[in-house]
Amino acid sequence: MSASLPASISPSGPGHSGAVLARAPRARLRLRMVALPNRLATLGAAIVALGLVMAILAPVLARYDPYQIDVVHRLQGPSAAHWFGTDTLGRDALSRIIFGARTTFEVSVGAVILGGAAGIPLGLLSGYFGRLVDATIMRLMDAIMAFPGLLLAIALAASLGGGLVSIYVAIAVSTIPHYARLARSVTLTQKARDYVSAAQVVGESNFSILFREIVPNCLGPLLVALTLDFAHAILIESSLSFLGLGFSPPTASWGLMLREVSPFLELQPWEAIFPGLAIFLTIFGFNLLGDGLRDVFDPRHYEL
C-alpha cells in the first residue's frame, strides 16, 4: 500500500484482534435468529407447526374418512370411537378437523401470498417514488379500505360465487391495502436513511436502490406482518365459510363445521367447541409467532 497514513489515525489500537471480533457477534446473531427470543414465540411456532403437520399428514392421522356419512351415529358426543364426537351427518369430527387444517392452511397461505404479492410491490413503489405514483396508489388503497375488510371479503365472495379461488381473491383484495400501506411506510423509513442517498451518490439506478438496498431492510417487518396475516386470513375464511360464502359443503373447513352445527348449539355444544378451538389455537399460534419474529427483527436485538 503506497498510501500509508500516519499511525495516529489507525483505529485499531494494540490489543485488538480484528479477526476474532469480526466473527463472534455474527455467530451469536445467527443463533438468536434460530432460537426465538421468548418462550411464547416458541409456543406459537409449535402450535403452527402442529397445525402444519396435521394438514400435511391428514390422510395418515385421520382415523375415518372425513366425508363418510353415517347417519345412524349422528351428533354423538365424544367417545372412544369418535374422540371429538360426530357431526350432523355422522361424520367423525376429529377427522374433519384434521382435514380442515388442510383447507385452512391452503387458504391462508394462498390468500396471504396473493395479497402480499399485489400489495407489497405497490407499497414499495408508492413509498420509493412518492409524488404522483404515491398519490395514485394510495388513493386506490384508500378506496378499498373504505369498506370494512370483512364486509369487502363477504361482498367479493358473494359476487364471485363460492370456491377456493373466490375465497383467495376475497381475502387477498381485502388485505392488499394493509400490505401496501405497511410496505410504503417501511420504505419511507428506509428511504430517509443516508445509505439510500449514498447509493444514489455512487450512481446506482432506482431499480437497484429499491431492490438491492431498500427491500432487504424491509423484509423483517413485512415477514412479521405476513405471519400475523395468516391469522387474519384464517379468521376471514372461517367467517366466510360460516356465513355460507366460503367453502360449500361437504368440504372439511373449520368455519363450515361451525356453521353446520350452529342449529344444534344448545343440544350438542362440543360440536362447536372443537372447530372453534382449532381456529382459536391456530390464530393464537400465528400471533405469538408474529410477535416473536417482531422481536427478532427489531434492530435493537443486535445491540448489547
Binding site: R193, D194, Y195, A198, A199, G203
Partner: peptide, 19 residues
C-alpha cells in the same frame, strides 16, 4: 456521479445495515 462523492453525518445510517 463517479466524480462527486459524499460522506454523511450519521455513519450508521449511511451504511446499509444488511450489507
Amino acid at each position: 456521479r463517479q466524480s462527486i462523492q459524499m460522506v454523511f453525518q450519521d455513519p450508521f445510517s449511511s451504511l446499509n445495515p444488511r450489507k
